[in-house]
Amino acid sequence: MAEITVTINGRQVSAKEGMTILEAALENGIDIPTLCHHQDLTPLGACRICVVEVEGSRTLVGSCHTPITEGMVIHTHSDKVLATRRMIVELLLASHCGSCFMCDKANICELRKIAADLEVGLPRFQMRKNYYPLEDISPYVVRDLTKCIMCRRCARACSEVAGHNVFAIAYRGFDSKVVVDFDQPIDKEVCRDCGVCISFCPTGALGKPREAKEEKRGKPLIITS
């Protein structure tokens, strides 16, 4: 693939044609936060956390799906970009259930990590939250869709990595939801124990059933003064 030259954050760097902006940035040691994106999955562009400024573009562009082209001038951490990312995280937190201290995945939650990195605290506005009953009848996977942020990594991982097709997206807008069959709780009939989706879920929406005495996963938070 042909080498191209682009400018990222004021520095001239080289990239290869066919790469996305995200890949090119990563290769040059620039870290762009992502949520719905995962290197093993087809880009979706849904969460918009990875947006960057490309000079000449009216809007910000999703770096996970936009091909990099010769001469692009890109800002990955401008004020505009950071403000946008912060507001998206604030929105996701505002409709999120927010019970981190009770969440098994709190210490490895990507949403929480990004919120911390971007210094987003408590949302400044109230929003409707989608509360769904906990789905814990399957011996292999527990779904708590109240914690779902609609990144669809589970659905893509199930079809693209595990080779199944258990999940689908139903309804529309704020009511949209990752469903199984006729929007019924996931059970052992439809899903085996491959656990692929669990490892792809960035939040606490998917987890393994907790056995008695099992410790919370992840490293404990170490508070330093």
Partner: peptide, 21 residues
Amino acid sequence: IAELAESLGLSIGEVYGVASF
């Protein structure tokens, strides 16, 4: 929905997802 899914080689969820959109 189930019959359509079967005949088109889609999952029930996929058909339900379109129907509910």
